[in-house]
């Protein structure tokens, strides 16, 4: 293979222009998700962890040079004596967290999702999961939440961790999920990998279902509907709910089943919803279509003899482009408009 054949976009490219005639700028990693119409909560993870730590002295926090970028700085500033800055060393982060659990502590370890799932995987597998140690791994920049390109886009983290025995996996949608999840995963006796939205995080679920509360291991119907059932996780539940409102205008009645716990999957609820019948089932995830929620749901349905019309919305099996997030969400089919359009076409 020559070097030249490896180059995908080596040739000069024409830069796209936005509606104002100017090129469209990349959103920095600090940029929040576009979540129009929703209130936001600042650093829900950091505040929830701090609140819990005030009651539970076993809780400690560790990071690999990303406290500020995972909202762990809230905890670190308030409880410096219970915070460990491990430096930029993700493998060490995981080994050391395992060591802390061996001495009876309850560590929350943070980094970006790409670095936990890719660089530190073997350390998580052997030092943590194989021994079923209750390390809580909480990781920012899940899926396509940065325009910086594949080095920071964790498009296959769920696939990687789904293959790992003992691991509980969470893909929260919003601030409600994150705040609700922290004490529940802290109390969980095994290892947990959770994706994280950080900074100003939208509050989505309680607007659609005022009494919504995160429950570890449970899928919950946020909205009912008779034409299509969207089974979604992470911020794609927000996209699904927004798309459902658009579809309603066209007379399409969409239900949304939110599945924040990816593993163990809430098989009973998923089967019960799917068996209601007569609805197209669409999974929606901020993750590669390989190995994530969509394939997990498909397996549950097929192995239980439930065979509805079934479609998947997710990121393609590719290394994604760099660029502005709204552009990329549109391009890869996970914007509200694209979700609604795809569903309309399938009906």
């Amino acid at each position: 293979m020559t070097l030249a054949s490896m180059k995908r976009k080596y040739e000069p490219r024409t830069v796209k222009l936005g509606p104002d005639g100017k090129p469209i700028a990349t959103s920095a990693m600090i940029a929040s998700l576009s979540a129009e119409g929703y209130d936001t909560v600042s650093a829900p993870f950091g505040h929830a962890l701090l609140e819990l730590a005030r009651k539970d002295e076993k809780i400690v926090g560790l990071t690999a040079d990303l406290a500020k970028y995972t909202d762990l700085h809230i905890f670190a500033q308030a409880m410096p004596h219970r915070f460990y800055q491990m430096g930029m060393a993700e493998q060490l982060l995981m080994s050391a967290a395992a060591g802390l659990t061996r001495e009876g502590f309850n560590p929350f370890a943070t980094t970006y999702a790409v670095f936990a799932s890719r660089r530190a995987y073997d350390f998580i597998a052997m030092a943590i999961a194989e021994e079923n140690l209750p390390v809580k791994i909480v990781c920012a920049l899940p899926g396509l939440t940065t325009g910086y390109g594949p080095s920071h886009q964790a498009t296959e983290d769920l696939a990687i961790f789904r293959g790992l025995p003992n691991m509980t996996i969470i893909d929260p949608c919003d601030a409600n999920d994150i705040t609700g999840m922290v004490p529940q995963i802290a109390a969980h006796p095994g290892p947990v990998y959770s994706r994280l939205l950080r900074g100003k995080v939208p509050s989505v679920l309680t607007r659609h279902k005022p009494d919504y509360k995160f429950q570890l291991g449970k899928a919950q119907t946020i909205r009912d509907g008779k034409d299509v059932l969207i089974i979604s996780s992470g911020f794609m539940t927000m996209r699904a709910l927004d798309a459902a409102e658009k579809l309603a205008v066209d007379g399409v009645d969409a239900a949304v089943l939110h599945v924040p716990t990816i593993k163990p999957l809430d098989v009973d609820t998923i089967l019960a919803e799917a068996r209601k019948g007569g609805r197209l089932i669409v999974t929606a995830e901020n993750h590669s279509v390989v190995g994530g929620l969509g394939e997990a749901v498909a397996t549950v349905l097929l192995t239980n003899g439930v065979t509805p019309e079934f479609r998947m919305i997710g990121l393609p099996d590719e290394f994604l482009e760099a660029g502005a997030l709204p552009t990329l969400h549109e391009m890869y089919g996970i914007s509200v408009d694209r979700v609604a359009k795809q569903i309309r076409n399938w009906l």
Binding site: K16, T26, T327
Partner: peptide
């Protein structure tokens, strides 16, 4: 750093 630029914000 623009969409479709040859110069993304992180070097590739």
């Amino acid at each position: 750093g623009m969409d479709d630029s040859r110069m993304p914000m992180s070097g590739m």
